[in-house]
Lab assay of single mutants.
Amino acid sequence: QRITLKDYAMRFGQTKTAKDLGVYQSAINKAIHAGRKIFLTINADGSVYAEEVKDGEVKPFPS
């Protein structure tokens, strides 16, 4: 399943989102408010992988 960072954070909370991605909650808040195009893939085992689309390139998040 693929979902935006904002939607994932709204569904699970910023604290869990940060923990799942290995970053601080403040980084999640800042990324959402900056309007960054970050998409999360939720794997069947429950693990989460995030990618950011920037300038036409897709890069892992966090980099």
Rank of each mutant, 00 (worst) to 15 (best):
Y49A: 08
T4I: 04
E51K: 05
N29A: 14
N43C: 10
G46Y: 05
V58K: 09
K16N: 04
A44C: 09
I38P: 00
K6L: 12
V23G: 03
G35Q: 12
Y8F: 04
G13V: 01
F12M: 06
R11Q: 13
I42A: 04
E57V: 14
D7L: 07
A18Y: 02
T17F: 02
R11G: 04
E57A: 10
V58A: 10
L21Y: 00
Q25D: 08
A18M: 03
H33W: 12
D7P: 01
A18P: 01
P60S: 08
Y8P: 00
Y24K: 15
D55Y: 08
R2S: 08
R11A: 11
T15S: 14
I32V: 06
K54T: 14
F39K: 02
T41K: 06
G56H: 09
I38T: 00
Q25Y: 09
V58D: 04
I3K: 03
Q1V: 13
K37L: 14
A9T: 11
K30Q: 14
V58W: 14
V58I: 14
A50H: 01
M10A: 15
G22M: 06
Y49E: 09
N43M: 14
S63D: 13
V23W: 06
L40S: 00
E57W: 10
S63K: 10
A50E: 00
A31N: 03
K37N: 13
K59D: 04
K37R: 10
Y49K: 11
G35W: 04
R36I: 05
Y24Q: 15
R2Y: 09
F12R: 03
D55G: 12
F39R: 03
P60K: 09
L5T: 01
K6S: 10
Q25R: 14
K54P: 02
L21K: 00
L40D: 00
E57C: 11
Y24H: 15
K6F: 11
Q14N: 12
K54S: 13
I32Y: 02
A34K: 10
T4Q: 07
G35N: 14
A31D: 02
N29Y: 14
R2P: 08
T17M: 03
R36H: 06
I3Y: 15
V48E: 00
A50S: 04
D45H: 05
I32L: 11
V53I: 14
I28C: 01
A44L: 11
K37G: 08
Q1S: 11
H33L: 15
D55K: 09
N29E: 15
H33M: 14
T17S: 04
Y49F: 13
A31Y: 10
V23D: 02
V48L: 09
G22E: 05
N43V: 08
P62G: 09
M10C: 10
F39L: 06
P60C: 06
A31Q: 02
S26P: 10
K59R: 13
M10N: 14
Q1C: 11
R11T: 12
K19C: 08
V23M: 10
F12C: 04
V53N: 09
G56F: 07
V48H: 03
L5N: 00
T4W: 09
E57T: 12
I28V: 10
F61H: 02
Y8V: 00
K19D: 08
E52P: 01
K30V: 10
A34N: 10
Y49L: 10
D45I: 04
A9M: 10
Y49D: 08
K54I: 15
H33Y: 13
